[in-house]
Design a protein around this nucleic acid. Structure first.
Lengths: 147, 147
DNA sequence: TATTGTTATACTCTATAACTATA
DNA sequence: TATAGTTATAGAGTATAACAATA
């Protein structure tokens, strides 16, 4: 028999793990259900707008997904005319993905609707202390994701 | 032109929203990639184990998804022999979903592997202060999901 | 050899629509 | 009428495998 403390800690961590899975699941379901462009595409669009043009590999690494998966998302965005590619002159394997005028327009329109309502919810349903708490907690979740 | 403060706040919230989307996306991708039963099934199994038998509707509400979607997950679990149903004698439309011996066994085996490693990561990569912070932050994310 | 990127394919997850049975 | 549940179907999202081109 191990010590009661050890067991209690493990139990607490297991319950926290369950709560993390459930909360994250609920949130991603909710975000996906929002009107407008698909979540994965919108996130990539917002990332390019915020951090600038990037290669498919860079985008994949930033989102923590496989390059093949990101290639699909970028292809869909390109087909929709929301991004375009310009070859990297220094490395002909690479290409920079950047927003087209249409992509910027869609992003603005989305933001006029307050970023698919998540931004609105953050402003309306959380106070400043809670927003600060959330800002502190996100890196912890990222650490769990990147372990 | 609106006040600079208003714009700065909106900007900060929009960036927080982006970070939430990205972090949650990364985490759910990582959880899905874990070996063992599919994430959605494991979560339902863990929920029944923690909170006891429940109807499909109850489970759907708890996870914030449609009853039709939960019906699929429960059907898959039943096909795999991990859960069974017992009719509610008071309401013949309803049935309680509970774990079978095989379901309990799978859950134990999963926990022997430390709950798909998320529990392990929580214990190993976070200190007590960070775990407390995470516990505080989860309800905020849930609020954003349930708004 | 390693890296960047691609297409083909398949699986998980979850939604909407349309339905049955019971309350 | 409302609620609990189901099946059918479709779409988003992402992975693995296999490949081509460039470094």
């Amino acid at each position: 028999m191990t010590t009661p403390t050890r067991n209690a800690d493990e139990q607490a961590s297991a319950e926290l793990a369950h709560d993390v899975r459930e909360t994250v699941g609920r949130l991603v379901r909710r975000l996906r259900a929002e009107p407008g462009a698909p979540l994965a595409q919108t996130t990539v669009l917002a990332r390019i707008d915020r951090f600038g043009p990037a290669s498919v590999s860079d985008l994949a690494a930033a989102e923590g997904m496989r390059p093949q998966s990101m290639a699909q998302t970028v292809r869909d965005l390109e087909t929709a005319g929301l991004v375009s590619r310009s070859p990297d002159p220094d490395d002909r394997r690479r290409a920079f993905v950047s927003l087209t005028a249409a992509g910027r327009e869609l992003l603005s329109a989305t933001r006029a609707r307050r970023e698919g309502r998540l931004t609105e919810a953050i402003e309306r349903d959380l106070d400043e202390r809670e927003r600060a708490l959330l800002r502190e907690a996100l890196p912890l979740l990222a650490r769990l994701a990147d372990r």
